[in-house]
Write a protein that binds this DNA or RNA. Structure first.
Lengths: 206, 206
DNA sequence: TAGATTGTTAATCGATTAACAATC
DNA sequence: TAGATTGTTAATCGATTAACAATC
C-alpha cells in the first residue's frame, strides 16, 4: 500500500465499511451515492476508487463486490499483521476483544502487563503475560509493533523499556507524547483530539 | 473554537499532551523543540501557537504554563460538554472509565444498553440504563450528543431510534456508515483506518 | 556583540472541486 | 435517442515549508 495519503486511507476504509454493512442488497453503487452518504464530493470518490484500480460501468456505477475486494487488496487487509498490546487495562482488554481486528488482518499475539494480580488471567483467549517477558517474546515471535494502553504516568518508562527490547512501531493510545530514538516511530491515537474535532463540526453546524 | 481546521486541533491537542506530561520541569519551550518531538516543521508549530494568541519570547521560546492554558482556552477544555454513551460493551465501559475525559470538559452523563442482564449494573459510578429511557432523559437533561459503541449489526437500528429521540450528533465508534437525516451529524471514529495509516507509516519508514 | 528564536510573508506543495468529453 | 455516470484534466483551495527581518 504505497502511494496513498492518510486521507485516502481513511476514506477507503469508510467506503469499505459502507460496502460491508450498509450496501449489501444490490450489485451496483454509484460514486454519487457513496458521496452523499459520506458527505463528500463525487469526483473525489471516483478518484479514490481509481487508485484501487477498479473500473466502473457507465450509467450503473461500480460493482459492490468488486469494489469491496479491491479496497481490501489496496489496504492490505488480507496480509497478517502481528502486534502485541502492552497494558491490560480497560482499553487494552477492549482492543483484544475487538472482533473486527481479525477481519482486517490484525493479529494480537499477546497482552502484557506488570500488575501481578493480572498476570496469568485470560482475556479474549489471551493470557496476560508479565512485561519482563517482552524481550524474550519479541525475539521468538518477531513482532516489532505494539499497541500502548498503559496509564499516561508510566507511558514513557514503558516505552523506553519496549524500545530497548526491540520494538520499532508504537501505536500510542495514551494521551502522552513519547520520546523515542529516530529508528522508532510513534503513531498517535488521540481520542480527545477526535472529540474536539467533532465538537468543532458541531459548532460549524449550528 | 471557530476558525481552526481539524489538523490544527489535532496538533494543538498533541502540544497540550506534551506540556501536560512531558515538559513539566522548566519554564520555557521553543517551537523547534516541540517540532522535533512531534516530527513537524518549526514554523508550523509557531503558526499553530499564534492561532492561540500566545506571544513567545525571543531567544527563549514560549512560557510552558502560558501556552498550556491558552491551548485549553482555544480548544474549550474548560467548557462542560455533556454526552450519553449508547452500548455498554467493552469499548463503551472503557470510555466511561477514561479518566481524562473529565479533564477535557467531557461529562458522560449516562450509559445505555438494551441487554436486560446489564441494566442496573454500575460501571465507573454510572448505572446502566435501559435504552427505552433515552427519549425521556434527552428531554430532561438536554443532551444531544451520543457516543455509539454498539455492535455494528445493530448500529443503524439504534441510530434510527436515537435520532427519533432527538439526538443531533453521533460520535460513531462502530465500523459502519450511518444513514441519518441532514439535521444530524455523524463523526466517524475508525480504529481500523488508524491502524492502516500507521501501517502506511511503517512501510514508508522501511 | 553574536547567536538564537520569534512572527510573518511569500513560495511550494498537495488535496479537493469543477467541468466536461466519452459512452453505455 | 436522452439521461446518467464514469474517468480525467484543469482550476481552485488550503496547508505546509522556506526564508528572513526583527529583536532579545
Amino acid at each position: 500500500m504505497p502511494d496513498v495519503s492518510n486521507k485516502v486511507i481513511n476514506r477507503l476504509t469508510l467506503y469499505h465499511c459502507l460496502l460491508k454493512y450498509t450496501v449489501v442488497d444490490r450489485p451496483f453503487i454509484s460514486s454519487s451515492e457513496i458521496a452523499a452518504l459520506l458527505d463528500l464530493d463525487d469526483s473525489l470518490v471516483r478518484k479514490d476508487i481509481a487508485l484501487c484500480g477498479v473500473l466502473g460501468h457507465k450509467k450503473q456505477g461500480y460493482l459492490v463486490l468488486d469494489l469491496k475486494k479491491s479496497i481490501e487488496n489496496k489496504l492490505g487487509f488480507s496480509e497478517r499483521k502481528k502486534v502485541f498490546i502492552i497494558g491490560a487495562g480497560r482499553l487494552g482488554t477492549a482492543l483484544v476483544n475487538y472482533a473486527d481486528f481479525k477481519d482486517y488482518g490484525i493479529d494480537i499475539l499477546a497482552l502484557f502487563d506488570n500488575d501481578s494480580h493480572k498476570i496469568g488471567q485470560e482475556i479474549g483467549g489471551q493470557k496476560i503475560i508479565s512485561l519482563d517477558k517482552l524481550s524474550n517474546l519479541i525475539s521468538r515471535v518477531n513482532v516489532k509493533n505494539i499497541i500502548l494502553t498503559v496509564p499516561p504516568q508510566v507511558a514513557q518508562e514503558v516505552t523506553d523499556y519496549a524500545v530497548q527490547c526491540g520494538v520499532r512501531f508504537i501505536w500510542n493510545f495514551t494521551p502522552t507524547v513519547l520520546k523515542v530514538p529516530k529508528s522508532v516511530t510513534v503513531y498517535y491515537e488521540n481520542v480527545i483530539s477526535s472529540f474536539m474535532q467533532m465538537q468543532n463540526a458541531m459548532i460549524a453546524q449550528i
